[in-house]
C-alpha cells in the first residue's frame, strides 16, 4: 500500500464518519438515551408527588412478589402465542391463495390487505361497536342464526381469544404479504422436478414449499413478535385491561402503573423487564432464522 493511498484513506474515513454522525446522534438521542434513562429510573422510587430516592433493586424484588406482574406475563404470553399461531397459519393460507390467483383484480388484492393499513385505534373503536353485547352487530348475527349471544370482550374467559381474533383480522394480511414475497422467490425448478416425479399438491406443499418458506416465516414471526409482545393500543381502546385483569398485559400494567398510578420507578422496572423479554425473543428467533436459512 502506498503512502499516498494511506493519506487519502484518513480524510475519507473522517468524511464518512462525519456523514454518518447525524444518524448516530439521532439513534443515541431517540433510542439509547430513553432506554438508559428508563433503566436508571427503574432503580429509583418516585412518589406521586415527584419525590425521588434511590431504591436499588427494590422495584425488581417487588415485581417477583407482585401477582399483577405474573398475571401480566401470563396474559402477554397467552395473547402472543395464540395471535402468532393464527396469523402465521392464516397468513400463509392467504399468501398461497394470492400467489395462485394471479389473475385476481387489483382491487380485490387491495381489499385483502387493507385491514393492516387501518390505525389500531380506529380498528379498536370499530370492533368495540361491533362486539357490544347489547347493541353490536356480532350478537345480532349470532342470535339471528339461532346461536346464543356472547359477551365477547366482557367475558374474562373469552376476552383474550377475542383480542387475538381482532389482531389476527388486522395483521394476517401483513404476514400474507411477507409470505407472498417469499413464495415469489422460490426456485421454480424444484417444483418442476416434483411435478415430473408425480408428487401430490399436499406433498409439494409439505415437503418443498413449507421448508423453503421457513426463513420467511421466521422473519414474519420476528416482526409480529415485537408488536405482539408489546400489545397495547387495541387493549387500551377496547377493555383497558379488563374485565377484572383478564386482558392486562405486561405493557398495559406498566403503562397504568406509570401514568395512572404515578409510580414511575416501578413502571420503569416493568418496562425494562418487558424490553428484555422482547429483545431476548428476537435474539432467539434470529438465531433460529440462521439455522433454517438456505
Amino acid at each position: 500500500m502506498s503512502a499516498s493511498t494511506t493519506t487519502q484513506k484518513g480524510p475519507l474515513a473522517a468524511q464518512l464518519a462525519a456523514l454518518s454522525m447525524p444518524a448516530v446522534l439521532f439513534t443515541v438521542a431517540m433510542i439509547a438515551f430513553p432506554f438508559c434513562y428508563t433503566i436508571w429510573l427503574s432503580f429509583q422510587s418516585i412518589s406521586p408527588t415527584g419525590m425521588t430516592r434511590f431504591e436499588g433493586v427494590g422495584n425488581y424484588v417487588r415485581m417477583v412478589g407482585d401477582d399483577q406482574f405474573w398475571n401480566g406475563i401470563y396474559v402477554t404470553a397467552y395473547l402472543y402465542l395464540l395471535s402468532l399461531f393464527l396469523q402465521l397459519v392464516l397468513g400463509t393460507a392467504l399468501a398461497l391463495l394470492l400467489f395462485r390467483a394471479k389473475k385476481l383484480p387489483g382491487i380485490i388484492r387491495s381489499l385483502f390487505i387493507s385491514p393492516f393499513m387501518m390505525p389500531p385505534v380506529v380498528a379498536g373503536m370499530m370492533w368495540l361497536v361491533i362486539l357490544d353485547p347489547s347493541l353490536g352487530a356480532a350478537n345480532y348475527i349470532l342470535t339471528s342464526l339461532g346461536l346464543p349471544p356472547s359477551a365477547w370482550l366482557a367475558s374474562p374467559g373469552f376476552v383474550v381469544p377475542t383480542l387475538a381474533l381482532i389482531d389476527t383480522w388486522q395483521w394476517t394480511p401483513y404476514v400474507a404479504l411477507i409470505v407472498l414475497g417469499g413464495l415469489q422467490s422460490l426456485p421454480p425448478s424444484v417444483y418442476e422436478a416434483a411435478e415430473i416425479d408425480g408428487a401430490s399438491r399436499f406433498r409439494i406443499f409439505y415437503r418443498i414449499t413449507l421448508p423453503l418458506l421457513l426463513p420467511t416465516l421466521v422473519t414474519a414471526t420476528v416482526l409480529r413478535s415485537v408488536d405482539l409482545l408489546r400489545f397495547f393500543d387495541l387493549i387500551y381502546i377496547t377493555t383497558q385491561g379488563g374485565p377484572a385483569n383478564a386482558s392486562t398485559t405486561l405493557n398495559i400494567y406498566g403503562f397504568r402503573t406509570g401514568f395512572e398510578f404515578f409510580q414511575l420507578g416501578y413502571a420503569s422496572a416493568l418496562m425494562v423487564t418487558l424490553s428484555v423479554i422482547v429483545l431476548g425473543t428476537v435474539l432467539v428467533l434470529n438465531r433460529l432464522r440462521n439455522t433454517v436459512a438456505w
Binding site: D132, P133, S134, L135, A151, W152, L153, A154, T239
Partner: peptide, 21 residues
C-alpha cells in the same frame, strides 16, 4: 344490568339508553 356490564363506562351507557334499551 346489560350483558357485558363489566366493561360499561359513559359511552356504552349513553348509547344503550339513547337507543331505548
Amino acid at each position: 344490568g346489560p350483558p357485558g356490564a363489566v366493561n360499561y363506562s359513559f359511552y356504552q351507557l349513553t348509547s344503550l339508553y339513547r337507543e331505548g334499551r
